[in-house]
Amino acid sequence: MNALELAGAGLRYGRTWALRGCFASVPQGRVAALVGPNGAGKSSLMRLAVGLRRADEGEVRVFGEPPRGANLPRVAFVAQDKPLYPELTVAETIRAGAGLNPRFDTPGARKRLDDLGIPQRKRIRQLSGGQRAQVAITLAVAKRADLVVLDEPLANLDPLARHEVMEGLMAAVAERGLTVLLSSHVVAELAEVCDHLILVSQGRVQVAGDIEELVAAHRLLVGPAGGPPAGSYDVVGRSDTERQTTLLVRLRGPVHDPRWTARELSLEDLVLGYLRAPDAVLAPRPVAL
């Protein structure tokens, strides 16, 4: 079962399309990275996923149904600015969460905050950025949502807080079997955390899929200038010097040419390679649709 499916989904603000014809799916239990340049459409995609906006074309499904009505409690959204009421105490924030969400797990939320060492008497404005992020994530988890969408959860946090926020989020994934979609434009820090990728650029999904499969399917080929090596592959990107040619390829079969060396790519290299080649699109359409 897919936690999230985009089937040709698009969104426009007035006459301007922010997203067009997006295809992507995130299987249940995955931690998906939503990456792309600023202004590429990441926030619009998240708004579609959590039902803050309806698609202007195509369809969005969360656990098989549109994200609205009775399906909405299954989705939680943590916006980038972690919008909490600064004058409320942590305990009052939890009570507000319980009042607004039918399935809210108050004891679970209290325990999680205790485990994190966040004092519930304190006002939100007295907390550090990392603690505020932890409170916001605690609310999302306590809502008993099955899909949690986080917009830049690590932005503006120091390295220790980033690590602690990720630890807390991953523990929640392990304990609750959550599916997570989180956006970031720092790809390097996602490599250990995410197992699924949605790369958005210029208002569409450019690459979507399992990160391990994506990495396994691509190589950087380095060889003599001129003709490309024999073999079955698609060229994503290419750079040439007088003596040498470098190709980023997606393999369809083995490449056999002893004059060429093949190197595996990191997730970051892969993302950069596709961003440099905006015409290369690798976002398979789901079979079920």
Partner: peptide
């Protein structure tokens, strides 16, 4: 959960 609560890695790993 114990492992990822310390290492901040994906539980599936």
């Amino acid at each position: 959960a114990e492992v990822v609560g310390r290492l901040a890695i994906n539980p599936n790993t």
